[in-house]
Computed example of a mutant assay.
Amino acid sequence: MEYLFDSLPFVATAFGIPQYLPQIRKLRRTRDPAGVSWSWAALAGVNNAAWFAYFAASGYWTALVPSTAATLLATTVAVLLTGLGCGSARAAAAVCAWAALLAGAAAVAGTRGLGTLLVAAAAVQVLPSVVTAYRTRRPTGVSAGTWLLTLGEVCCWATYGLYRGDPRLIALGATGITASLLMLARIRYTGGPAVPSAASRVAAG
C-alpha cells in the first residue's frame, strides 16, 4: 500500500507535464479566447515557479518536472492571450505584486513562509479562471482537456498530501479539484462553437 501512495507523485507528473498543452493548441487553432483568463495563465506561471522552489526545498524531487513544465507552458498561454488582445495593465500589475509577495515571503521566512503563502496561491490562481468562465456567456475558448488533466494532477497531490500529512498539498488539491469541477461543468453546459465577442475578450483579462 505504501508503494501505491509513494507512486502518486509520478502519476501527478504524468498529468501535470502536458496539462496546458490542450489550451495552447486550442488558442492557436481557433484564435478564440472567450472565457479564458489572462490572469489565471499568468498567475499559474508565477505560482508554479514558486512551487518549484518549495518542492526543491522540501525534497519532493519528482514534482520539479511538472512544476517546471507548468511554469513554461502557462506562461505560453499568457503570451498567446496577450497576442489575442486579452489582459490589461491593471491585471499585469496585480500579477507582479503577487510575485513580489511570494519572493518576499521566501526571503523573510524561508520555505515555511513560502509554503504558508502557497496555501492561498491555489485560490488566487484559479479564482480568475472560474470568474471569467462564469461571466462569459459562452466560454468557447476554454479547453476541457487542460482542466481534465488538472483534475487528475490535483487529485493525486491531494491524496499524497493526506498520506504525507502535508497541509499545503492538501489545500492545493482541494482547491484545484473544486476549480476543475466548476470549469468542466461550465464547459459541459455552455460549450460549443461561437464567435468571441468584444465583451468576452475584456472579461478574459
Rank of each mutant, 00 (worst) to 15 (best):
L4E: 03
L4V: 13
F10A: 15
A12W: 09
F15K: 09
I17S: 12
P22Q: 01
K26Q: 15
R29W: 02
T30H: 03
T30E: 08
R31H: 14
D32T: 02
G35T: 00
V36Q: 08
S37H: 07
S39V: 11
W40G: 00
W40D: 00
L43A: 09
V46P: 05
N48F: 06
A49L: 11
A50I: 04
A50N: 06
A53E: 09
F55L: 07
A56E: 10
A56W: 12
S58G: 02
S58N: 06
Y60N: 12
T62V: 15
L64W: 08
V65C: 02
P66L: 08
S67T: 15
A69T: 14
A70H: 09
T76F: 13
T82Y: 10
G85E: 01
G85T: 02
A89W: 07
A89N: 01
R90S: 13
R90E: 15
A91P: 14
A97Q: 01
L101F: 08
L102F: 05
A105M: 04
A105S: 10
A105Y: 02
T111P: 10
R112C: 00
G115F: 05
L117S: 07
L118K: 01
V124E: 03
Q125E: 14
V126L: 07
V131E: 13
T132Q: 11
A133Y: 04
A133K: 09
Y134H: 14
P139L: 06
V142W: 13
G145L: 14
W147G: 03
L149P: 06
T150Q: 09
L151T: 08
C156Q: 10
C156K: 05
C156A: 12
A158K: 05
G161S: 12
R164W: 03
G165S: 12
P167V: 09
P167H: 10
R168T: 08
I170R: 08
L172W: 13
G173E: 07
T178R: 08
L181M: 09
L182M: 15
R188S: 15
R188N: 14
P193L: 03
A194W: 04
A194D: 04
V195H: 10
R201Q: 12
A203L: 15
A204M: 13
A204N: 13
G205A: 15
G205T: 14
G205M: 01
